[in-house]
Structure formats: structure tokens, C-alpha cells
Design a binder for these strands. Structure first.
Lengths: 217, 217
DNA sequence: CGAAATGCCGGGAAAACTTCCAGGGCTTTT
DNA sequence: AAAAGCCCTGGAAGTTTTCCCGGCATTTCG
């Protein structure tokens, strides 16, 4: 039997981290559980502890989960990241995988699933929630729908898409991303082209259907 | 000193419930902590245990948090519900309060805040996260009730509002209404002014929240 | 009834925005 | 090394929006 698996939990809610930690500690295969409250600090903790697996929440203030995944991988190309999110939309799954995550499960699972996934990753495998993996397959087959089109956006385009759909003006989005306003304009045109919509309203509606913007509880 | 406060935790994530429970149990004022994994079961548990306070997550599969609040209140008009959500947007707060919740706090708070809120509700009070309560007050003062603003639109403006929010371009809306496109442009400006939004996306999001456009079947 | 208010319609000029095109830098793939 | 894709930017041209204006019809009120 190998050594116990060490885990780094990244989530901005202390309460939530406590819950995960409790469950992870129940498993005999899992040893130390470190914590970080956001992407920025995750790097530092990783540096010190070099955990076997990183469990990353997607929705966090600051960098956000996806960007955190990317940055971690820049510094530690071989680190194994399991994204653990509340979102069960396929868009997020594919984004996470493309960003370099080795696994994706939602928080709706039994706690055991988290342990299983962590172990799988520790052994060098990948773990994607079965239900989602299946949907993903079906989706591939159907091919030509909105989710597919959203997936066709480049990472940068997706960022801008989210901001614009949430009501930011071209200029505000540019400021937020530290880009020229013309750049965002050009991306915006490309996005509308790829999603085959003509107006910003259509774009927002599509985003709403895809669960990328939230309009109500 | 009164009896200890009994609490019912409603959240679909077992992992998350565990975290809350741990923290709640640290307080001497809090006694039994029951759990339910969704709105449907919350009623049953409430029936058996009649807890002093219900702590309800907003985003849940099935009924969803808001609807669960309403249903609980139908059966138990005096039950004290504290909504505990990740959302810090005012929309969610107002909806929760309208649904009959006695308190609202976000998950970004220190765990102690949850305890404080639970105690306040148990004593018959209300607890709304200070930062949000302040925003809400400001919001009221300014008169930013979205529904109210929509009503302030003239009949013609409302027509145009609907068309634009549904994704039509200014020109298409003009054609549809047999108007000069300049007219629609001018109306559009007035509409945005009245609704205090800057972009078409914001306008669409508002329309979506107000149920004026439908985003999903 | 006259006057004022409000809603509706659109023109012109100026400002803002988008589109189209072109180019440079970077990384990954072949 | 070449090709391809993404990202960023700028200029020029085209389009849209804004702002300000006046005209018209209806309603309200002194």
C-alpha cells in the first residue's frame, strides 16, 4: 500500500471547507488535508506542501476557479486538479477539462464520490462524473446546438462572452480585462458570429438558457 | 436561560450540511440540529421535530429554496426561516423576504454570524446581513424597484421594450411596428433611462427577471 | 375654452460604437 | 520550418445611438 494521499482544498467558504475536510478525513487512504481560500493563495500552499491532489471550487472571488487552474498548471504542470463545482452544465465541464483539470464532479454527489475521485486522480487517472460524461457523449452526437457553439468559443472569447452577457458594456469589459476597447469589440463580433446571434439581447438570452448568467433563484 | 435552540438544516449537499452542523454545534445556545436534503423532505422533518429555526439553502434541485420557503409557510405560518445563500445580489434577498423568510445571510460570513442569525430568529427577530440590509435601504430610497420601473414605461415604450429584450434589433422592431428606426432608437434611449440600465444585455436580464421574456421552455 | 402636460413620431448633427481589414507576437501542431 | 490558431491592437469606413429640436394628437385642469 502506498503512502496516504495528501489533498489541498481550495474554496472560499470556510464552512464548506470544513465539511469536505470532515468527509475526506474519514477515508483511510487520505492523509493530510490542506486548505486555501482562493486561487492566489493556493499556489503558495501548493509550493510548501506539494499535495497529491488539488480539489478546486469553481466559483470564487478574485481569480475564479478556472483561471486558478490555469495558473497552477503553469507553475506545476503535473499537478492533479479535481474541479468540484455546483454547476452541472456541460459548458463548465469542458471548460475545466480544457483548462487542464484531471477531474470534474458536482457537489450533488455522495461524499464517497469525492473520495473515489480524489483517489483516482492520485493514481494518475481521470474522473468525470458519470452522468456528465454521458451527457457529454450525447451532446457530441447531437453536435449542433447552443452548448456546442458556446464550447467553440476560445478561452478569451468565453471570458468576454460572460462579461457582456452579464450586462457590462464593451468598455467596462475592456477595463476589467485590461484590454483595448477595440479588442473587446472585435472579440464581440467574433462571438456573435460563432453563436449566430445578431444582437446583444440574443446573446444574453442564449447565455441565460445555458445557465451562464443567472436571472433568478 | 431558555431551552436550547433546535435547528433544521435544509441543503442538498451532505458535505455542506456537515460543515454547518459542526459550526452550529460549537455554540452552547444551540441544541439539536436536524437535516433535510431538499424542500420536499423538509416539511416532513419539520412535522416531526418542529425545530425553532429552519436554515434554508436557496439553490436546490426539485422545488428550489424559494418555493420550499413558501410551502413550509403555508403549512406552518409561524415557522422561522433563515435563508443562507451564496448569492449576494439584492434580487435574491427581496425574493426571499417576499416569500416570507425572516432572515437572509450569505455564506461568505464568518460562521459565528450564522449562529447569531439563528439566535436572533429564535427570539422572534429578523436578521438580514448588514451589508445587504444597507444596500436594500439605499435601493428603496432611490426607488429602484424593477417592477415599478417597468410599470413606468408608456404603452409604446413597453412594446418596444419587449421586442428589444427578445433579441430583435432596433431596425427589426421598427419594421415590426411600422416606425422609423430613429423613433425606436429614441424610445430605446428613454427606456434604458427609465429602467436605469446602460446596455441591452442589462435590459434583457431585467426583462428576464421580470418574466417578460422566457429563457427556457 | 385656452393652457399645460404627456405621449408619440421623426429629423439633423455630433458622438459613440461596430465592422472590416491588416499586422505583429506568441504557442502549438504538423 | 512552416502552418494554424489565438490574442492584441490600430485605422478607416460604416452604422447606431444620443441629444436636441419641433410637430401633432390627446388628456387634464383651471
Amino acid at each position: 500500500m502506498a503512502n496516504k494521499i495528501s489533498v489541498l482544498l481550495v474554496d472560499d467558504h470556510a464552512v464548506v471547507r470544513a465539511g469536505y475536510k470532515t468527509y475526506l478525513s474519514l477515508s483511510e487512504r487520505i492523509g493530510a488535508v490542506y486548505e486555501a481560500d482562493r486561487g492566489e493563495t493556493a499556489c503558495q500552499v501548493y509550493d510548501k506542501q506539494t499535495p497529491d491532489v488539488v480539489v478546486m471550487d469553481l466559483s470564487m472571488p478574485g481569480l475564479g476557479g478556472l483561471e486558478s487552474v490555469r495558473r497552477l498548471l503553469v507553475r506545476y504542470p503535473h499537478c492533479k486538479i479535481l474541479v468540484f463545482s455546483i454547476h452541472n452544465e456541460l459548458v463548465y465541464v469542458t471548460r475545466a477539462i480544457k483548462a487542464g483539470a484531471k477531474g470534474y464532479i458536482t457537489k450533488n454527489n455522495e461524499p464517497d464520490t469525492l473520495v473515489t475521485a480524489v483517489c483516482t486522480l492520485a493514481e494518475g487517472g481521470t474522473y468525470i462524473e458519470p452522468a456528465l460524461a454521458q451527457q457529454l457523449a450525447v451532446n457530441m452526437a447531437i453536435g449542433q446546438d447552443e452548448a456546442y457553439k458556446v464550447k467553440s468559443l476560445s478561452p478569451r472569447e468565453f471570458d468576454i462572452f460572460c462579461l457582456l452577457a452579464n450586462g457590462l458594456s464593451t468598455r467596462e469589459a475592456a477595463d476589467k480585462l485590461c484590454l483595448s476597447y477595440k479588442t473587446v469589440c472585435n472579440h464581440s463580433t467574433a462571438i456573435k458570429e460563432k453563436l449566430s446571434v445578431k444582437t446583444m439581447s440574443e446573446l444574453t438570452l442564449l447565455a441565460s438558457r445555458q445557465g451562464i448568467v443567472k436571472t433568478s433563484a
